[in-house]
Design a protein around this nucleic acid. Structure first.
Length: 416
DNA sequence: CTTCCACCGGAAGTACCGGTAA
DNA sequence: TTACCGGTACTTCCGGTGGAAG
């Protein structure tokens, strides 16, 4: 124990792992200069006592939307204090505060208003918050992050009320910034809301591998001891994350986990191998998450494919369906139709669990050739947990339960 | 050039479930 | 408490298709 604890007290690699966490806002945001500038221009009018234009921000996960907004608004409010032109901003994540009631209570809470957490109607909460905000001449900026997590009618209600709140205010003014991952989100928004909130728009493009490298290097300086991350490790983190739509959050996760693995192994340095291990770990988590929420028949389809692959053949839809029926019968379940299985295959493909390549074999028809693209041993682990499937797996797939497959599926090295 | 395989994938409809408004 | 709504999982029916074989 003593050894373990003293090791924890004297970490060999990390200085501060917090800077690799997704909610950390760094002092530098590489490759977002442009967005910072235009957001800065939009909100700067607040310093003159004007309401900034309402704004919608789009961009995939890990493109720095939240970071840029927090970064700019933090500096704005600092500046406003300096010049005694009070600007206050509220950050609200609608994944957590996912009803209009909670959004308004949160605004109240953040502005220092005491509210009973229950017993009031939404309208009453709105009224109290509004009056409280209006008690002073001030500019407020409300940031609503992950808007797509609000239910459709909820988002209409919140945004509509917020958009019109200025009509009821005499002293204060409120500007709104809405952030969403989903470009289509705005399409199915109430038309009135859309027009009043979409005064300005910004799009955050994904990062490419080189930009990700810069971001990682910047953070690695703060997170790790000097010279304890190899250049290759960073490059691979960036390349792996760039491969999936340039998600900086993912790149940072990879680097953090790789660091933790390196630390656990008591290595001197974070190396390529640690990144690959981290990748496998994250990938495994993802697969478990995905497969465990899959509908029952989808799992059986996957199980069928697994069985066939273990027998080593090119699997087509038709053959898969045969095996699927066979397994269903053994398990005593009603099979679904081939049409449905065809859709299930497409769904699994979209989730990245398998690949389906359409081939034309002329006289012998047109079909899809199926391949599992995740580690089969992870799948088996999951299937073993399922009481209905478990027996079957133990009986029919015992050859897969051995370790022979385990290592043959490691991440293929990527070409830098 | 035609045929024809083994599917693909669109359209429309049913059954069921969980959540919400009345 | 109940009627209603929207989403998901699934059917049934069927027209469409690229290219090897004839």
């Amino acid at each position: 124990m003593d050894k373990i604890f003293s090791r924890a007290l004297a970490p060999k690699i990390f200085v501060n792992r917090e800077v690799l966490r997704p909610d950390y806002i760094p002092e530098q945001l590489p490759h977002r200069e442009e967005q910072i500038k235009s957001l800065g221009m939009i909100v700067s009018v607040a310093l003159q006592g004007e309401r900034p234009s309402n704004l919608f921000i789009y961009g995939l996960t890990g493109t720095g939307k939240t970071a840029v907004v927090k970064y700019v608004l933090k500096r704005l409010s600092d500046k406003s204090l300096e010049f005694n032109r009070p600007v206050k901003w509220f950050y609200i994540n609608t994944r957590i505060d996912n009803t209009s009631y909670r959004v308004f209570t949160r605004i109240g809470e953040l502005s220092g208003l005491k509210l009973p957490f229950t017993g009031l109607s939404t309208a009453e909460v709105y009224k109290r918050v509004r009056d409280f905000l209006d008690s002073e001449k001030r500019i407020y900026i409300v940031v609503l992050d992950e808007l797509d997590f609000l239910a459709r009618n909820e988002s209409d209600e919140v945004l509509y009320k917020l958009a019109r709140i200025n009509e009821d205010l005499t002293k204060a003014k409120v500007g709104i910034i809405g952030i969403t991952n989903n470009i289509r989100f705005v399409e199915n928004l109430d038309a009135r809301v859309r027009s009043s909130l979409g005064e300005e728009e910004m799009v955050f493009p994904p990062y490419n591998a080189i930009q990700l490298e810069d971001i990682l290097r910047e953070r690695a300086k703060l997170a790790f001891k000097e010279n304890s991350v190899s250049e290759e490790a960073i490059k691979i983190c960036a390349a792996l994350a760039a491969r999936e739509h340039g998600d900086a959050r993912r790149a940072l996760d990879l680097l953090r986990i790789a660091g933790e693995i390196a630390e656990r192994e008591q290595a001197e340095k974070v190396l390529e191998e640690h990144v690959y291990k981290a990748y496998d770990e994250l990938e495994k988590e993802r697969v478990i998450q995905l497969v465990s929420t899959l509908p029952f028949h989808s799992r059986i389809v996957l199980l069928s494919l697994l069985k066939m692959e273990s027998e080593g053949v090119n699997v087509t839809t038709g053959e898969l369906y045969m095996v699927y029926r066979e397994i269903s019968q053994k398990l005593g379940i009603d099979p679904v139709t081939q049409r449905r299985v065809s859709d299930i295959i497409s769904e699994l493909e979209a989730l990245g669990i398998l690949s389906a390549r359409v081939v034309n074999r002329g006289r012998y028809g047109k079909t899809r050739i199926l391949k599992i693209t995740v580690n089969p041993s992870t799948l088996i682990e999951i299937f073993i947990q399922d009481p209905l499937i478990r027996d079957y797996v133990e009986r029919e797939l015992e050859n897969l339960l051995t370790t022979e497959l385990q290592d043959s599926y490691n991440t293929q090295t990527i070409d830098l």
